[in-house]
């Protein structure tokens, strides 16, 4: 899942991004509204975590612009203003969810996952294919009841392939959804990760390679 985190407090932004990345999310960071809008023009984000009190272009304005542009990204507003009016106003601007600072990471991550689930076709809380099970909330994947020791990225790739419902997913798409902008687009990371994932999933093979660089479960 590709996430854009917009937060003007640099230290806080970096800390949140670190934890979210550890959870297997692909996180880009923007430090002000202008940068956020520039980023959303280039990349297609699943979820935008938006601080409301931003210098330059205000968070409310960012939210409004995204809605006007018909953005498909889900917006989670993260702010210090917790009065009832503020929350109602924030949701009224088009935000999909609202979380006040300070927050617990468990809640932030759960909410990001929850609003992302709403974007596509309805997804079950536990993804399954054959004898493979993946619980996105607990970050646990099992095969035949045995827990698989997957890295966050491998888990994210597996999750993305499972949510594609048998559709062919290209390497570029995986790169755009599972990795953040820090990744070199000409890298073989995807191929390497898939190879490792296949090895960990064991037999019978689940991930199928489709001609011209696509994968499918």
């Amino acid at each position: 899942m590709r996430v854009l985190l917009v937060e003007d407090h640099r230290e806080l932004a970096e800390t949140i991004a670190t934890v979210l990345r550890r959870e297997g999310l692909a996180v880009d960071v923007a430090f002000d509204g202008r940068q956020a809008l520039a980023q959303t023009g280039v990349y297609d984000y699943d979820v935008i975590v938006l601080d409301r009190d931003l210098p330059g272009v205000h968070g409310d304005q960012v939210c409004r612009t995204l809605i006007d542009q018909g953005s498909q990204s889900k917006v989670l507003m993260l702010t210090a203003a917790d009065a009832l009016e503020d929350r109602v106003e924030g949701l009224g601007l088009g935000a999909d969810d609202y979380l006040t600072k300070p927050f617990a990471f468990a809640e932030l991550i759960a909410r990001i996952r929850a609003i992302n689930r709403r974007s596509g076709p309805p997804l079950p809380p536990v993804l399954a294919r054959g004898d493979l099970r993946l619980d996105p909330a607990l970050r646990v994947a099992t095969r035949r009841g045995h827990r698989l020791a997957l890295s966050p990225k491998e888990l994210a790739v597996l999750e993305y392939l499972l949510t594609a419902h048998g559709r062919v997913v290209s390497a570029e798409e995986l790169l755009g959804r599972v990795w953040d902008q820090a990744i070199d687009p000409f890298t073989t990371t995807v191929k390497v990760t898939i190879r490792r994932l296949r090895a960990k999933l064991g037999d019978p093979p689940l991930i199928e390679t489709v001609r011209e660089g696509g994968y499918r479960i």
């Binding site: 407090h9 230290e11 806080l12 300070p102 927050f103």
Partner: peptide, 26 residues
Amino acid sequence: VANASHELRTPLALEQALLEAALTEP
């Protein structure tokens, strides 16, 4: 009030985030 809550809550959020991040570090 809005500004004060922003100014007071941001460092609180940072502290909480820092400590949680440290505790969940693999």
